[in-house]
Write a protein that binds this DNA or RNA. Structure first.
Lengths: 230, 230
DNA sequence: GTCTATAAACTGATAGAC
DNA sequence: GTCTATCAGTTTATAGAC
């Protein structure tokens, strides 16, 4: 028979804290952890079935909370979806830090491709939720694309144009170069099922991702008149 | 006031033929045209909202037929979806005909990229329905990927390995080369909203597709140690 | 804060008259 | 073959007891 203290801790671990049996600090930690569990569950369900196909019942089930609680923490299914997307967008813009004027072009682009492939391997669900949102017209993040993302690409494009003007690489359209890199890396997350099927595997192996990063880097760098990296 | 004949023709054009007012031949043509309209409407709705988000009511509305008739021509929503996919797959394998042993590698790959970009431009909805299906685990076309598509890629990979062995191009992994080409071309259909937003446009222009085809071809061919085409 | 029960709205599919 | 009316099953969201 568990003590009252053990029972309370069990509740913190599993379904959160009931009012009155935990200090404020612990309650906040617990609340944050419940929200994190719901967000993680939501990401997986949205990735598998898209926004419309996802049900709050399934998300709640995977998060291990009653459906009513999900609606207590996130008012509507759309609110939950928006917050999942928000987390993904923050992940996205974090890469590409090495693309700055005084970097070596080959090193910077190689690093960017590797980081994006790494993300495809580590967070394929996030990539799929994002891809699904864009394919269906970006109803929730259209503003982000036209503002933050466009600004980000404009800044990076200026860097690349600078490299070209300095004779450090072949003349290419910098924006379409980014479209190429995004497509080539994200495809290993979004289309993993197709790629695995063509390779005759159940799922992609670490070696597949490694070869993908190597070849994508080589072809794109070479296409930009740069030497491949070790 | 329309004559009886005009009225009958109008019905053929709009909702098909009622029993008794058309010969068998005309009825069959009409039936095919109704099915084609439903399939086209279904493609657009599936592309916009995915399988789960699509409603048979919306598809019927766009096709200009009562919902019950849609279920008369296509028993279930899944049946309709499968037939839409079927048409898309046939479209897909048609390209790549020039990738055969005695072709010039640069010409063949350039032609393949151009054909795929052309398809992205002409049939973006088809590309999005396909992408949506793959992202969500290919529940309906998993078999196609493991059989027909895998065989197709195996055959083409042998051709490319032959070109490499003959010293006609740099050594690359042929399968990952296809993944690159698919990703780079289909992204202009699937992610058109994102690309247009980054380019600051309402939608992509013919010049955008032309530049895309040119740059994708240049970078991939150069990356394969081949000279760019005119 | 948690959870059961249920309201309110939607959707795929069909019955049955024409 | 066509079409209106409707059923049966889901699904989002909330009320209200604890």
């Amino acid at each position: 028979m568990p003590t009252a203290k053990e029972k309370a801790e069990q509740e913190i671990m599993t379904i959160g804290v009931r009012r009155g049996n935990a200090a404020k600090g612990i309650r906040q930690i617990s609340r944050a952890s419940i929200e994190a569990r719901i967000l993680a569950a939501a990401e997986s369900v949205f990735a598998e079935t898209g926004f419309s196909g996802a049900t709050t019942a399934e998300i709640a089930k995977r998060a291990g909370v009653p459906k009513a609680n999900l609606h207590y923490y996130f008012k509507t299914k759309t609110d939950l979806y928006r917050q999942v997307l928000q987390g993904i967008l923050e992940l996205w813009l974090g890469t590409g830090d090495l693309i700055k004027p005084d970097s070596d072009p080959a090193e910077a682009l190689n690093h960017y491709v590797a980081a994006k492939i790494e993300l495809a391997q580590q967070r394929p669900l996030a990539s799929r939720v994002f891809a699904n949102e864009i394919i269906h017209g970006a109803p929730q993040i259209g503003d982000f694309l036209q503002e933050e993302l466009r600004d980000w690409v404009d800044r990076k494009a200026r860097v690349i144009d600078g490299w070209i003007a300095a004779g450090k690489m072949r003349k290419v359209d910098p924006r379409h170069l980014f479209f190429m890199i995004w497509a080539n890396t994200q495809t290993y997350a979004d289309f993993a099922v197709q790629i695995a099927a063509v390779l005759g595997r159940e799922s992609l192996t670490p070696e597949d991702y490694q070869l993908a990063a190597k070849q994508v880097s080589e072809i794109i760098l070479s296409g930009c008149g740069l030497n491949a990296q070790a």
